[in-house]
Amino acid sequence: MQHLWLEVIDTNMDEAVPQRIAAHYEKRPDEPFADTGAAIGRLLALGATPRDLCLLMRGTAYETVFATLYALGDPGVDGDGVFNLHEELLTADPSGMEGRPGSV
């Protein structure tokens, strides 16, 4: 569990990350979740600080890890099928757009 906390949750506290995310997606506007970069840019323009965004990302990461671990404890989850779930995540987007802009 400590690995998840340190490598998934707390890594979101690097205040350079929001700007790097925005710059990355500005160069790759058709990638999954590219609209995240534009949203970060708008929030920064409205006065949010990089730390504000880091706190939001950290909280979201925690909720996501928690929900995933909770779901894995579901008796209906097949233990053998759990190991490669990360490879199927983008294909699980109900819109069929694999998280790309406009998928929500």
Rank of each mutant, 00 (worst) to 15 (best):
M1G: 14
Q2L: 14
Q2V: 15
E7F: 08
E7C: 11
E7Q: 13
V8Y: 09
D10G: 09
T11K: 13
D14M: 02
D14Y: 03
E15M: 05
E15W: 03
E15N: 05
V17F: 09
Q19R: 14
R20L: 07
I21V: 13
A22C: 05
A23F: 05
A23H: 06
A23K: 08
H24F: 09
Y25Q: 03
Y25R: 02
E26A: 15
E26I: 09
E26G: 13
R28G: 07
R28C: 08
R28S: 10
E31A: 04
E31F: 00
P32G: 01
P32S: 03
A34G: 02
D35S: 06
T36Q: 08
T36F: 05
G37L: 02
G37M: 01
R42P: 12
A45V: 06
G47K: 00
A48V: 07
R51F: 05
D52L: 01
D52F: 01
L53E: 02
L55K: 07
L55V: 13
L55E: 11
L56F: 10
M57L: 09
A61Y: 01
E63L: 13
T64N: 10
F66G: 10
T68P: 09
L69Y: 05
L69I: 10
Y70T: 15
L72G: 03
D74C: 07
G76T: 15
V77K: 06
D78E: 06
G79K: 06
G79R: 07
D80I: 11
G81Y: 05
V82Q: 05
F83N: 13
L89D: 10
L90Q: 03
L90A: 04
T91G: 14
P94F: 00
S95K: 02
S95M: 02
E98H: 11
G99D: 01
G99P: 04
R100L: 02
P101V: 02
S103A: 04
V104A: 12
